[in-house]
Write a protein that binds this DNA or RNA. Structure first.
Length: 597
RNA sequence: GGUUCGGUAGCUCAGCUGGAUAGAGCAACAGCCUUCUAAGCUGUGGGUCAUGGGUUCGAAUCCCAUCCGGAUCACCA
């Protein structure tokens, strides 16, 4: 049994035997002792005074004596005001070290055959522009969440819904036909998603020009929009697409293929992937069927103009449009259709949508609608809502050209990491290929960690010039720490030492060693908390603390390689577990660790 | 305006279901490379936790109000 539980039980027992009072186990105020105080666990006795009817110090002392007598793991205790600090024995911590050094998957739960299936949707790009900084946050969060869910014993299906239909796609297609027919990614040497994105921008520019000239002729903004020939052509194209016009569909397929190829490269660079990809072009009709079925069952209603609505006033919300008066689908309809297809494909127990917080309302509504339509997981769906990524000068605006492109950003990071490595002379003596792999790992580590360490709910500021660092609370710092751990074992091997993970009892531990052990023992709780709170940031901040603590330990108490001693073995075991824990925590974040750097 | 999320050091962020003297990193300054990797370590300075009330042994944390900022309130996606 975990030591926390044992202490709590004994506290309950102490209250009973000393004061004849009852307290529920969960209500025992047990905490991890502050760093600047002596001890491992602390019982806060203030809330217990009502039961003991004695002064804080007195209560704490009496409880301390009781606990020390009853639990051999407790070596001593001290009382400061109403705080009872319990110090666990070195032997207890050594036994913890021995236990966890033996378990390869310490902190991770195995996935049972009947484990719940969690589906996580993330990324969800439009096919008319390349991925940008906001998508990076989305992808990294989604990917990390899937690993955290997996580590907590869930079956996980990573999914992506690609928005591949609609007027915006037609704009790119039209621009290509008008001003770029014959141009391909091959002919331009451009990534497909960027090429298509360029045509989308081109459409927008020409559309603006057209509007301007229309307005110059005295039309109002509204009239100009109505009169625009370009927009009319785009709408026509959408109709043709919906009608299955072979030429339009062919072009649509071709251009989408370009985009997907480009996306695949970006996903690969980011290190994320999916188990199942859905396309809105396949789901929007299903959604319409679902809504019509709901209409037949009188869950929804039809207005005079033919549009279909859901009345959500009983749930404290308003009315929501599900089908336009012309019978076509809206965003919500598509999400319902996608849900249906997913439900048919997988036995989903829990659904997680990683989508920005500007869609909080949408998912509130979706949850209610899916529930009404009979999806078991509808009510409990999780909208993992994250904040925007802002630049130092404000928000990213495509019009103002302040969008940070994902591919560019990654390239920039890699370049910086390369320059930095060269400057420090870190990769001298490595083949170009090895060096390139290492600074790539570092660059991505920096980017990923920077984004994941922030609480996802908050909007965050990202300065491409200055924010990304390789020192301090960063990915590379943690990677560096891992590399140093590996170096310890390389050194040992060079010296021909036999590295045993056997831990002998009776050793005395330094404060740093004790702190490290305490942190390592806490890892499973961190993994579990991260899952319950949907927070990769929890893991990120944990692994930084661990790395920092290890660096201090490493610096303060060098390992004496030459003597084969129990102390050295204990430190080897400690270092080994630290390395493993860093690797596992970083795995949860989707960040690679280099063997050396 | 309604709903909702946020406001912690010059900057970027931690601070769990209320607990001890509010913590890291960056930036600034001062030290440490004959010792397992200096992408490291040590030290110094830096705070009215937006503001005002309330709840209690105890509040950055919970409640109310106010101020400031974001998001949202489409037959857009």
């Amino acid at each position: 049994m975990a030591i926390e539980q044992q202490i709590k039980q004994k506290v309950v027992q102490a209250l009973k035997e000393l004061y004849g009072a009852d307290l529920e186990l969960e209500k025992v105020p047990l905490e991890i002792t502050r760093k600047d105080q002596k001890g491992d666990f602390t019982v806060v006795v203030f809330p217990l005074l009502k039961l003991s009817r004695k002064k804080p110090e007195e209560t704490a002392s009496e409880m301390g004596s009781f606990l020390k007598d009853q639990l051999p793991a407790i070596a001593s205790f001290n009382v400061i005001k109403g705080f009872l600090n319990l110090e666990l024995s070195h032997d207890y911590w050594l036994s913890v070290l021995e236990t966890i050094s033996e378990k390869e998957t310490y902190g991770f739960k195995p996935v049972a055959d009947d484990a719940p299936l969690v589906m996580i949707e993330y990324s969800s790009p439009n096919t008319n522009k390349p991925l940008h900084l906001g998508h990076i946050r989305n992808n990294l969060l989604g990917y990390s969440l899937s690993r955290i869910a997996h580590a907590n014993g869930n079956k996980v299906v990573k999914t992506n819904i690609v928005n591949d239909r609609g007027i915006h796609i037609c704009k790119s297609m039209l621009a290509w036909k008008k001003w770029g027919e014959g141009v391909t990614p091959e002919s331009t040497g451009k990534k497909g998603d960027h090429l298509v994105g360029d045509f989308y921008v081109l459409f927008d520019q020409n559309y603006k020009k057209e509007l301007a000239s229309l307005k110059a002729r005295g039309l109002s903004e509204e009239e100009a929009v109505k009169e625009s020939a370009l927009m009319a052509e785009a709408r026509e194209m959408l109709l043709a697409w919906e009608a299955g016009d072979p030429a339009v569909v062919e072009l649509w397929k071709t251009m989408n293929e370009w985009v997907y190829k480009g996306f695949d490269e970006s996903y690969k660079a980011l290190g994320v992937d999916f188990d199942k990809i859905y396309y809105e072009s396949q789901t929007y009709k299903v959604g319409r069927e679902m809504v019509l079925e709901g209409l037949r069952q009188e869950r929804f209603y039809r207005r005079e103009d033919g549009s279909v609505w859901a009345d959500l006033s009983k749930d404290g919300l308003d009315e929501k449009l599900l089908l336009r008066s012309d019978g076509t689908s809206v965003y919500m309809t598509q999400d319902i259709g996608t849900a249906k297809l997913r439900y048919d494909d997988f036995n989903i127990d829990k659904m997680v949508y990683v989508v920005g917080n500007e869609q909080d309302y949408h998912f509130k509504v979706l949850s209610i609608l899916l529930d009404r339509l009979g999806f078991d997981w509808g009510k409990s769906l999780v909208h993992f809502s994250y904040g925007m990524v802002e630049l130092p000068h404000g928000k990213m605006k495509s019009r103002e050209g302040t969008v940070v492109d994902a591919d560019d950003l990654i390239q920039e990071m890699v370049d910086t990491a390369r320059d930095m490595s060269r400057e420090l002379g870190k990769l001298d003596g490595y083949s170009d290929e090895d060096a390139a792999r290492i600074y790539r790992t570092i660059a991505l580590g920096a980017l990923k960690y920077f984004i994941l360490k922030v609480d996802p709910r908050k909007s965050m500021t990202f300065d491409p010039q200055e924010s990304i660092d390789f020192n301090g609370n960063t990915g590379p710092f943690i990677q560096y720490t891992f590399a140093r751990v590996q170096s310890v074992f390389r050194k040992a091997k060079e010296l021909g030492l036999e590295v045993t993970m056997k831990v002998e009892s009776g050793l005395s531990l330094t404060e740093k060693e004790n702190n490290l052990l305490r942190m390592l023992a806490n890892f499973p709780k961190v993994v579990q908390d991260a899952s319950e709170a949907f927070s990769p940031a929890l893991v990120a901040n944990y692994v930084f603390d661990l790395a920092k603590e290890f660096n201090q330990f490493y610096h303060e108490s060098p390992i004496a390689y030459e003597e084969d001693s129990a102390v050295r073995n204990m430190r080897f075991a400690l270092s080994s577990v630290v390395g493993r824990t860093i690797r596992q925590a970083m795995w949860l974040l989707g960040i690679d660790v280099p063997e050396r750097m």
